[in-house]
């Protein structure tokens, strides 16, 4: 039955090696994000540099997962839940690679901000990081345990991240309008916040993939979305009225 192993046990080993690599890659991506945010909070350029360098290991794991998945496809001709597992691994690996890229980009901006005279510490930033970090760890747990319910729970969480990003976006725009000397650092900060918001989007994607992998169908309802920054405009009067 599907709960038990394959008659050909090496098939199980192949699939397990692939899934373990996903979990390893996810763990690495999670710690990359953590280091990037920590480096920002502590203004720790060394940690930021290490984070940028750490991205290569994630890329390597992605290649290794791709190779494992291609091998299973070629040699085992997987079907049904096995097929869904292999296709999911390919897609999840690609998404995790993006997650790590965004983290590395945050770290790069931390290095750039070192030259900025003063950076506003914004409480929303570490909070976003925290929420997204938890999304990553819960997604990995859902993946490891084939837990579609937990994946669904993560899937619904992205709205909160979007809302935090909206408020940060508005706040940073306001700072820039107040004093043009803020523009350079605030622009970096906006990109950093956007990066975290994008990581949240990718985790939502991965959660969707896990739901498909486990149940055979992706969620049909519309994805919860809260990012309104693409339609946001702020004027002088908004600042004066304190909106």
């Amino acid at each position: 039955m599907s709960g038990s192993g394959h008659t050909v046990t090496s098939y199980d080993e192949d699939l397990e090696a692939m899934s373990n690599a996903i979990i390893e890659m996810g763990g690495l991506a999670e710690s990359q994000l953590e280091s990037a945010i920590r480096s920002f909070i502590d203004r720790n350029t060394e940690l930021a540099k290490a984070t940028v360098e750490g991205d290569a290991a994630v890329d390597e794991l992605e290649h290794s997962i791709d190779n494992k998945a291609i091998r299973v496809l070629a040699l085992r001709s997987p079907v049904a839940d096995d097929l869904r597992r292999v296709i999911s691994a390919l897609k999840i690996a690609a998404a995790l690679e993006r997650v790590a890229d965004y983290s590395a980009n945050i770290a790069k901006r931390v290095i750039a901000l070192e030259k900025a005279p003063e950076t506003r510490q914004m409480s929303a930033f570490p909070r976003m990081g925290e929420i997204v970090g938890r999304m990553i760890s819960d997604t990995l747990r859902a993946y490891a345990h084939d837990d579609a319910d937990l994946a669904y729970d993560v899937w619904k969480r992205d709205k909160e991240v979007d809302q935090l990003y909206n408020s940060m976006f508005r706040e940073l725009l306001t700072y820039m309008m107040e004093d043009h000397r803020n523009i350079s650092s605030c622009t970096h900060l906006i990109f950093m916040a956007k990066n975290i918001e994008r990581i949240g989007d990718h985790m939502t994607n991965i959660a969707e993939i896990i739901i498909y992998q486990v149940t055979g169908t992706a969620p049909t309802e519309e994805r919860p979305k809260g990012d309104k920054t693409s339609v946001t405009m702020i004027s002088d009067s908004d600042i004066q009225s304190g909106k």
Partner: peptide, 10 residues
């Protein structure tokens, strides 16, 4: 489950 078990070789 039985279909899945059979076609996947379990």
């Amino acid at each position: 489950e039985r279909t899945q078990g059979y076609i996947t070789g379990r």
